[in-house]
């Protein structure tokens, strides 16, 4: 029995680390085949695949869906093959895997710095395509009546692609959604259950409205320092709002706890959103330290905020590997 203990521990070690699922490949018609690749014949563009069903498949690249094709091609191009990475980046961009494409452009430039002018040219095409794609997402969301989602896409285009014509279009469209989405978020305050609360939070509401207005103006500005200043002032307005809520609670310790917690969350969510806009703005300029500082401010408010945690990881990755940012 005693000798079994370490053996069991080692079995546990293997189980902990084993991948949960096998690989899979998807065909153009949507069929997914679980299994693993055995060979790729570059001259014939044929992938040999051993299915978990025990069958062997010879799959032409043309018969695979685009993302599976990408997986195959990626496995054939080492990161230090500049020209190969450039071609792969263009393919990846054209199948709308924009973020993946940006990584490949980064690898291409790192492997062969002489490719920089071509990478810049192709990245400009990528930014246009990504902007157009984002606008389509916003329109699709709006067509479904999902104004919040439409607004999220517009904000994404504006903050990720400053200076692009698509960002200018997004700025113009912002007015269609911004007021109604934000009004929905603050309807609890607007419909406050009693006059005491309404009067007590009037100053805070004013600061909150100012924060929203400054955020909108920053989103609709030409970007750069004007946008940054606008967002920084918006955060200050948000902090003033929180102070007013605290003040009210101190004066009225009974009966409002839950309601005020909800108000605080609404304000904090908006402040986090603005910190994320700032982080995105800095990251597009490759000012990764400033971007990280903004993300950390967001995480100081909500340590588990998934968007901020993801953004921090992406910034750290781009900064440490010297990769481009989209």
């Amino acid at each position: 029995m005693r000798s079994l203990v370490p053996a069991l521990a080692l079995v546990a070690a293997v189980l902990f680390c084993a991948p949960a699922h096998a690989d899979s490949i998807r065909l153009k018609d949507g069929t997914r085949i679980a299994g693993h690749a055995t060979k790729y014949d570059d001259s014939k563009s044929v992938l040999s695949w051993k299915g978990d069903d025990g069958k062997s498949y010879e799959l032409k690249l043309d018969d695979l869906d685009k993302r599976s094709t990408y997986s195959v091609l990626k496995s054939q191009v080492p990161n230090d093959n500049g020209k190969g990475q450039l071609q792969l980046a263009n393919f990846t961009r054209d199948i709308e895997l924009f973020a993946h494409a940006v990584r490949h452009y980064g690898y291409a430039e790192k492997a062969d710095p002489s490719l920089k002018p071509e990478v810049d040219k192709q990245m400009a095409i990528l930014r246009t395509q990504a902007g157009q794609w984002g606008l389509r997402q916003a329109k699709a969301a709006a067509d479904k009546g999902d104004k919040k989602r439409a607004l999220e896409w517009l904000e994404k285009i504006i903050t990720k692609l400053p200076g692009e014509p698509e960002a200018a279009t997004a700025q113009q469209l912002l007015d269609n959604y911004y007021a109604s989405v934000k009004a929905e978020q603050t309807k609890e305050v607007d419909n406050a259950p009693d006059e005491k609360l309404k009067a007590g939070l009037a100053k805070g509401k004013k600061s909150y409205d100012s924060m929203l207005e400054r955020n909108k103006k920053a989103l609709q500005s030409k970007g750069g320092s004007a946008a940054i200043k606008g967002w920084e002032d918006a955060v200050k307005d948000g902090q003033k709002t929180l102070e007013e809520i605290d003040k009210f609670e101190k004066a009225n310790p009974e009966g409002y706890t839950e309601l005020l917690a909800g108000y605080r969350k609404t304000v904090n969510d908006q402040i986090i959103e603005i910190h994320m806009h700032l982080a995105s703005q800095y990251a597009t300029r490759s000012s990764y330290n400033d971007a990280l500082s903004q993300v950390n401010k967001a995480l100081a408010i909500d340590a588990q905020n998934a968007e901020a945690l993801a953004m921090r990881a992406r910034i750290q990755d781009a900064a440490s590997r010297g990769l481009r940012w989209l």
Binding site: A37, Y70, S71, S75
Partner: peptide, 10 residues
């Protein structure tokens, strides 16, 4: 997930 490269049996 399309991250990473495809692993071949060999």
């Amino acid at each position: 997930c399309v991250c990473g490269t495809m692993t071949f049996e060999e």
